[in-house]
Amino acid sequence: MSTEPRGKRPGRPSIGSGNEPSGRRPQKMTTGRFGLYAFLVITAAFFLTPLYVMLATSLKSMPEIREGNLLSWPIAPTVAAWVKAWSTACTGLNCTGLQVGFMNSVRILVPSVLLSISVGAVTGYTLSFWRPRGAEILFGALMMVAFVPYQVFIYPLVRIFSYAGLNNSLAGIVVVHTIFGLPTMTLIFRNHFAALPNELFRAARVDGAGFWRIFGQIMLPMAVPIIVVAMILQVTGIWNDFIFGLVFAGRENLPMTVQLNNIVNSTQGEREYNVDMAATMLTALVPLAVYFFSGRWFVRGIAAGAVKG
């Protein structure tokens, strides 16, 4: 990705200071610039509409939803739907609300994030500094898997997990998240370590430091930024997971996304759109919070996970 051709023209004298960012132009409010802002603002409105409608709907009462229109702000905003979604919304005959799914998601999230990052960091470190035989093949295999549909693995995995007694358990879903988080985690840690000067590693070897000591005392402290990136990727990825939670977590541990879908599709009595939307918002809150608080780190995560091969 970094080897794009630089179409620099030879023999052109540079004009100005030469350090301007790309695309700088004089900032007059011309027709063109007006059109540019108009496009950006309209597109931004399109992107914000679903969030606004979700929020507005979740604060309305059902009669208001039926009589009013989609875009109107609630006349008498009420959080009743939020309370109901959180504590008493039903899936089938089970009316304990989304809080159950929330707690399950937290219980899945914490060990999965820790384990997947640990395995990825150790694998990336070993692959980039120790290069045992077959390292390239292993890395290639990991990268291939990043594109293969999960459906190819799922049925045999369910069978293996049943034999091992891991099926429908918290441990099972944690292992699954570690397995399928491994390619990306290995990739970003390997790339990060590969960018460090090799002298660092050699000096530590000369000083007699062993495998784990170099990892723990030298490499890990230098990997803090990439650990943050890895956490952002894994927290949002695992929280948003649906398919693995559905198949491997078991009825007792269903994550929030699965429970949300069950609540919305539960056909007991009249559909309550305000409760549905409050539940949807509640499920989106964790990744949204990660997104808004992490700022540019989120984009770094995308970039780090996107550089394949």
Binding site: N240, F242, T257, L260, T283, Y291
Partner: peptide, 10 residues
Amino acid sequence: LYPFSMSFIV
């Protein structure tokens, strides 16, 4: 970019 942080279910 914010929609990308949310799940496909949402």
